[in-house]
Design a protein around this nucleic acid. Sequence first.
DNA 1: CGCTTTGATAGTTTTTACTTATGATAAACA
DNA 2: TGTTTATCATAAGTAAAAACTATCAAAGCG
Lengths: 294, 294
Amino acid sequence: MINITLKQLRYFEALARHGHFGKAADACAISQPALSMQIKEMEEALGASLIERGPRQVRLTHFGEVAVERARDILRAAEELGDLARASRDRLVGRLRIGVIPTIAPYLLPRVIGALSEKHPELEIHVRETVTPKLIQELGEGKLDTAIVALPVSEGSLAETPLFDETFMLVRSASEANAPMPSADRLREMRLLLLEEGHCFRDQALSFCNLPSGPPREVLDASSLSTLVQMVSAGMGVTLIPEMAVPVETRSASVSVCRFEDPEPTRTVGMVWRKSSPLAGQLGEIAEIVRTCS
Amino acid sequence: MINITLKQLRYFEALARHGHFGKAADACAISQPALSMQIKEMEEALGASLIERGPRQVRLTHFGEVAVERARDILRAAEELGDLARASRDRLVGRLRIGVIPTIAPYLLPRVIGALSEKHPELEIHVRETVTPKLIQELGEGKLDTAIVALPVSEGSLAETPLFDETFMLVRSASEANAPMPSADRLREMRLLLLEEGHCFRDQALSFCNLPSGPPREVLDASSLSTLVQMVSAGMGVTLIPEMAVPVETRSASVSVCRFEDPEPTRTVGMVWRKSSPLAGQLGEIAEIVRTCS
DNA sequence: CGCTTTGATAGTTTTTACTTATGATAAACA
DNA sequence: TGTTTATCATAAGTAAAAACTATCAAAGCG
């Protein structure tokens, strides 16, 4: 293994450029003997002479000429590494892998991605949409940088910050539009359509109705809010959806949407990331961007 | 200017490869704390974190992943510089710029170049053919690595080694083939054809005849031995040529060649180079090759 | 809970790199 | 031809960097 140093390459490059030990040493802000010695050590390390020490002149050997080009390449590459580092700390650069739960993704992401890529044009955004436990796991494995989920997550290794609260709305068939608002308790007796097992939103809805979560009940479980609304529209029952989903999901369905009375059911949506993540600082900024567009 | 070291790059690369401080340190044959510290210093120098120090695991940051590739590039380039150095010292590599005087070049070079490129196939040979003073000047300016000229040169800064002695032969018209050999003194009264001013061989011939060198005499001056012989063949006079030139130059000319009586006129041909040349060692070897094929 | 693994920290020693002072040599000059 | 000047090498001492050993702290695991 060759044992030269970048410092030696720098000195050598300066020497090649100035053709003069003293001037090169000045340029490197060191004394002339220091430069002489480093050059000599470099020659020893390489086992070949770089310069021809003629009286009154410093001339590169043939190998020296080849070497100085190589040296410049290497120094340039090192500088570029520095540039890269600077770029990576000044702004978010490269890849941001963000996970989002399915009951938020379709409604929030379009705006978030727009805002993010406007602010950080060089940021390459990868989105993963799946249920909270999977997101948390992938976060832990380093496959994701951050995730947007319902809080709390309560993982010691993860940091979390709230983004916004969202209310759950009741969706029932259009014919019931003017019926009185059922209480949480009355909901239990209605045919409540829910998302399939695994979605946190299912548990949150059940919890609001004081129903135990767990094995599927006698109702049909859907895999998306969109499906749920279509099922309601077909008169199969009622359901809850987050407020944010209302504009998108009820646009083309003959359903009525109404707000619960106080206390309204809500959940807090937030962002989580590994406390140890080096992006920690910048993720706070990203959370802020998400907040402003939600 | 970025202030990292190749050592740090090596350590970092090992860390990235092993994903483990202890193992990486072993691989680098240093202690674990030493590696930890160098990595930390590298991160400080770059102003960006390279690894995410999670408990129980070492994971590269996004920047770290980019950086390790860069690091590998840089390390590879440094190794290549070492390879290059090794190649350049084990054998003659690259360019050998050799100067030869015109009265030797055509007769010696074919064999020398053949032998040289057989022994050092990667050697790129450049030949410069001109008169001694020009060769010496270009040698001093570093435009040539070595030159083959008539000794002595007596330049303090140049090393010289004899290659061989060569005898001068008399060339006269074929009709004089059986005439008695003229003495050096008699030559003065004959029509002696010579090379033009500047060729050392001209001076050597004049010196043999005890004639002053200097301004052209009433004779025609030729620019090559070949021309001289053709002039002799045309009956314009006599001339001297080096023994080595005889086979080539008299093959297709109706002239007679004869050897002088003792003391025969001779000159010593040798090789010269800058004492300070880093090729000095190898030039001795080259001189040896030239000797064996002359 | 203790035990083990793993990386960070502290204190010390060794090595490396730099500085100033001086020497040597050849070119430049008178 | 001696003297000066320019230029790089060498030497000796000092400052800085990098290494080691020992120890600590935190996290995973039985």
